[in-house]
Amino acid sequence: MREVFFYLFAFLSVAFAVISVTHKNVIKGGLALLSSFIALGAVYFTAGAEFIGIVQVIVYGGAIVVLYLFALMTMDLKSFGKEPLRALSLAVGGAVSLVLFVSVLYAGYRFYGGSLTAGISGAKEIALPLFYRFLLPFEVISVLLLVATVGAVAVGRREE
């Protein structure tokens, strides 16, 4: 059963990612990105990474994409204009991403047929390494978030 849901949600997340990248309308692209992130959270659930799945849905779906959509509301969508498709950039983009995809598959080929641990990692299991071994990075990340918040307000405020 886990396998079926893993493949289903993996397919959904890739399909919505393709829609979000290629759609002309930015709002619809953002909603497709939201769906892609939620499907990815479900993929983490099927892999047993419970806490990461929840955090993925809350942070990516609830905070980041909503932040993008709020910023889009302050802009005039009609002023965005057309994006002409250039054959050169399409060819370069397709070729580079294809090469990268093949190289990722090549790097992962030696893990073909291996097996994963079946354990479920909830908040309790994550807390142990997070608050003992990685306590200093955790504190540094909190300072980074504070700096980013102050910086975003400083950059975004109107000049008098």
């Binding site: 893993f6 993996a10 993929v43 910023a71 994006e83 991403s97 995809f101 992962g108 073909y112």
Partner: peptide, 28 residues
């Protein structure tokens, strides 16, 4: 569900994202 499936999913998402970075002109 093997480790290789994670490689396929990650590679597909990375390819789609990189394609978007190169082709799109809209900052959002």
């Amino acid at each position: 569900m093997t480790p290789f499936d994670f490689f396929v999913l990650s590679g597909l998402l990375f390819a789609v994202g990189l394609f978007g970075v190169i082709v799109r002109r809209n900052v959002i």
